[in-house]
Design a protein around this nucleic acid. Structure first.
Length: 838
RNA sequence: GCCGAGGUGGUGAAAUAGGUAGACGCACUGGACUCAAAAUCCAGCGUUCGCAAGAACAUGCGGGUUCGAUUCCCGCCCUCGGCACCA
């Protein structure tokens, strides 16, 4: 403590002349200079044929809806680039590409409004964005850039469509689909959020349309199983699981009374079959019309009309009262021959299971509510283990238990009963096991212009015909009318629509819808490793060498869209023999969201933080580093104008430190105080490395700050003549290397200041010496009955008995232990000594 | 309602996950340098009581396990994401 007080009176020991020689930290000039040099020397060009120690680090590519990078882009890209740089310094051949998901609505809407062709505005945006990305200083290999709106790319998106089509995984059907009245197009289920369009928040309506689907449901099970093989955030996997919505149960057939018709129902509770007291069909169920008796017809028709209306207005509210109406018909419970009424109700979904449900009011809350409302019978068939069977139910009992009122199955555990009843039904051909999924097929048609045309045509003779692969790409016509009126704009390009059938040579017309842009992004990671390939979408060998992606980083909002689609497409290509792997992204991390004043940034709120301003005023090194320092990467955080000055200050502090030591080079051999610097150096290497590995950038930076702080104390405490020479030869170069992933421009400059060979990124990442982070003497806290009462200093290798003895000798500890019975004494290695007394 | 994540100083946040809570920043306070300011360097800084030594209280709230809990268990309260009548 004494010598600290001395320091207060000392400023940095330098002559005025030397001080004047430390140049200003001119970030603008430095950043520009090194960006130019990196480009000239092709420093970030990756040799893709070298696959030994390959590492594919990928960020979700860019959607160029505007011409500037926003803070979310920076937060995704800059820290990931830091991680990639770190890995490169660790000796990996890191491939870090960037590209553009360039098709999509904003460009088209812009065209409708301003009359600028989407290709023009998109190219312009990409042009600007590319410059900005270069300012960020990321080590993208620009020779591998891709643009999904270029025919060289979408030719292969169309190829992908054809592979799915040929294998029965792409099909067309008429269905009630989600329609966004504002975007004037259909949407996939995944793109509907709370009943509204994911993009523009307009309420989505249902429309019956003939549309293209990808059969993702065929892959439901594989998509679930693959989760076990990937290192992804738990919550993302949970979201996908939930979205796929697997449930195991049975399909049970009920004969319609006095008819040959059969109603199949899906249930997860075959054990409650004896408790069925009525049957419910969705209003859209195909048998509804047939089952409705003459006297019930007016009521049923009225009900169907009404549900259609409510569904569009208010289908969101789950707390809505359940409604329904009796059809007049009955069906027979296969297990006991009981005749039960058939109702229709809109709490039954037409699109899930069979669109019909066996109602067990005693053991399903929805059926319970419904039966109370319409005074339908409630029959308990499961009771709680050890429970009394004469209770009246006040709510449905939905747990497992013991079967009752179930004839020969009485007394069975309901879990066993599930299996037995299905066996019983199977023998009589009225039921079987069944697994259902909530997942629906992926609707990929879009009635918009700016997308990849679907490579299908309709021939008067042959019907639906796939465009032969050798005729790809089906080029997007350039001259179209952007009506924005719900018809596919390319239908206005007559010479596009009218074509010739490749099979019979007769007249045919082309499909005028384009593909969902999520199709473009479902395979782009395969294209990056061979972006210029002309005759194939990808080179099989190259792709198998480089994929799966080792580290993928992007927003959590894509959990059930892009991330599910990409997995699906990968699995399909795997099954078709195009690739060896069946998961695209081995390890995934989601960056958090940067808010401003506690709210999500948005133009409408007017709280958008503009990165450009900070890059002008403080430099991109400061900006990117602050993004990493502000909080934990996966949590994101709230923007602060004040916080960023702390990082800028730190960078200037590093700048002056390195320069000063460079100018007044230590040549001495002082070792006592230098030991602390060395300790801090190795401590920083160790912990920064561990933190970086896990994307914990904030704590990694903290360790570097500690090292800088310790170095400052040293050069002030020890006069220049005796300062240890290793400060210059070892500590400063290592510090610069540790900084290189975070602030690549400044590190490159300081590396040059230290007269080291270009480039710092090609240096081996420092490795700590474990001996250096072990202290000879350590401080232990001494706890008596859970409270810290003192500190002792002991040799690091002291025996427990010795430590306890020293601890008991401590004045304060004696105060609390003397005269009392010592019940327990524990030594927690390198941490503390614990006493329990009575 | 269900599934996830979280609640820590004035403030952004740490804590290798049972072991000395608050590392590292920001803000603030004091000192050095300066004619002065800025910049820079050094130091202090959870709350309450105390001149101090120290003591008590502190990780959303209430219980529990333990010598010891931000960390584990039980019950609540908030905040943020996701799902939403899925039989």
């Amino acid at each position: 403590m004494l010598f600290r007080a001395e320091w207060c009176n000392r400023s940095i020991k330098m002559s005025e002349g030397q001080r004047a020689m430390i140049p200003e930290y001119d970030y603008a000039q430095i950043e520009k200079k090194w960006q130019k040099r990196w480009e000239e020397t092709a420093l970030y060009k990756v040799n893709l044929s070298d696959v030994e120690r390959k590492l594919y680090c990928l960020v979700m590519f860019l959607y160029p809806s505007g011409d500037r990078l926003h803070i979310g882009h920076w937060y995704n890209y800059a820290p990931t680039d830091t991680w990639a740089r770190f890995k490169r310094m660790q000796g990996y051949n890191v491939f870090e590409p960037m590209g553009y998901d360039a098709f999509g609505l904003p460009a088209e809407n812009y065209a409708i409004k301003h009359g600028v062709h989407p290709a023009m505005s998109t190219n312009q945006n990409i042009e600007n964005i590319r410059q900005q990305l270069k300012v960020m200083g990321a080590m993208y290999d620009w020779s591998c850039e891709i643009d999904t709106s270029k025919s060289e790319y979408y030719k292969w998106t169309q190829w992908l469509f054809l592979q799915l089509y040929k294998n029965g995984l792409a099909y067309r059907k008429k269905a009630a689909v989600n329609w966004c009245p504002s975007c004037q197009t259909v949407l996939a289920n995944e793109q509907v959020v709370d009943g509204a369009c994911e993009r523009c928040e307009t309420q989505v309506i249902q429309k019956d349309l003939e549309q293209w689907f990808f059969k993702i449901t065929d892959y439901a099970e594989k998509l679930l199983q693959g989760h076990a093989t990937i290192d992804w955030p738990e919550k993302t996997i949970a979201m996908q699981k939930n979205w796929i919505g697997k449930s195991v149960g049975a399909l049970i057939s009920f004969k319609v009374a006095e008819s040959a018709d059969i109603i199949d129902v899906f249930t997860t509770r075959p054990d409650t079959l004896f408790g069925v007291t009525y049957m419910v069909l969705a209003p859209e169920h195909p048998l509804v019309d047939k089952l409705t008796t003459a006297e019930n017809r007016p009521g049923v028709q009225e009900y169907i009309l009404q549900t259609r209306k409510t569904k569009e207005i208010d289908r969101l509210s789950t707390e809505r009262d359940k409604t329904g109406v009796f059809t007049g018909s009955y069906c027979i419970n296969p297990v006991n021959g009981e005749k039960i009424p058939i109702w229709i109700a809109d709490y039954v979904l037409a699109t899930y299971g069979t669109g019909a449900v066996m109602a067990v009011p005693a053991h399903d809350q929805r059926d319970f509510d419904f039966s109370i409302k319409y005074t339908l019978p409630i029959r308990q068939v499961i009771r709680k283990n050890g429970g009394d069977d004469k209770q009246t139910l006040e709510a449905a009992y939905t747990d497992a238990g013991v079967m009752m009122n179930s004839a020969i199955f009485d007394g069975l555990n309901s879990e066993v009963g599930k299996v037995r009843i299905v066996e019983w039904l199977k023998e009589r051909k009225s039921g079987q096991e069944k697994i259902n999924y909530k997942l629906r097929d992926w609707l990929i048609s879009r009635q918009r212009y700016w997308g990849a045309p679907i490579p299908i045509l309709f021939c008067e003779q042959c019907g639906e015909v796939a465009v032969p692969e050798e005729d790809l790409p089906v080029l997007l016509p350039e001259n179209v009318d952007f009506t924005g009126r719900g018809v596919s704009p390319i239908s206005t390009a007559a010479d596009f629509v009218q074509t010739v059938c490749p099979q019979c040579g007769g007249p045919a017309r082309r499909e005028v819808d384009t593909m969902d842009t999520f199709v473009c992004s479902s395979w782009y990671f395969l294209r990056y490793v061979n972006p210029a390939l002309l005759d194939k979408p990808f080179d099989q060998q190259r792709v198998n060498d480089w994929l799966p992606v080792d580290q993928y980083v992007g927003g959590a909002e894509h959990a059930v869209m892009h991330l599910l689609y990409a997995r699906f497409v990968t699995k399909v290509l795997h099954d078709l023999g195009h690739i060896d792997f069946d998961e695209p992204f081995k390890r995934l991390i989601h960056q958090g969201i940067i808010t401003n004043a506690g709210a999500k940034m948005s133009k409408s709120r007017g709280n958008v933080v503009n990165p450009d301003k900070f890059i002008d005023e403080l430099g991109s090194d400061t900006f990117r580093m602050y993004m990493m320092f502000m909080g934990s990467y996966e949590d994101g955080g709230d923007w602060s104008d004040e916080g960023i000055t702390g990082i800028h200050r730190f960078l200037k502090r590093v700048w002056r430190l390195v320069w000063q030591i460079h100018l007044e080079r230590p040549t001495g051999a002082e070792s006592d105080k230098f030991a602390r610097v060395l300790y801090q150096l190795h401590y920083a290497i160790k912990h920064a490395t561990e933190s970086l590995e896990r994307f914990h950038f904030n704590t990694a930076i903290s360790r570097l700050m500690e090292l800088v702080n310790e170095s400052y104390l040293y050069i002030q405490d020890v006069d220049a003549a005796s300062q240890n020479a290793r400060l210059y030869s070892e500590v400063m170069p290592t510090l610069v290397q540790l900084l290189a992933p975070f602030c690549p421009h400044m590190a490159e400059e300081l590396w040059a200041v230290l007269e080291k060979k270009y480039s710092v990124i090609d240096q081996q990442w420092p490795v700590h010496d474990e001996k250096m982070v072990e202290l000879n003497t350590i401080n232990l806290g001494v706890q008596v009955n859970g409270k810290i009462r003192g500190q002792i200093q002991v040799a690091a290798d002291a025996a427990d008995a010795e430590i306890i003895k020293a601890a008991l000798a401590h004045d304060k500890v004696r105060l609390y232990t003397e005269g009392k019975e010592l019940v327990k004494s524990i030594v927690v290695p390198k941490k503390l000594v614990v006493f329990a007394v009575k």
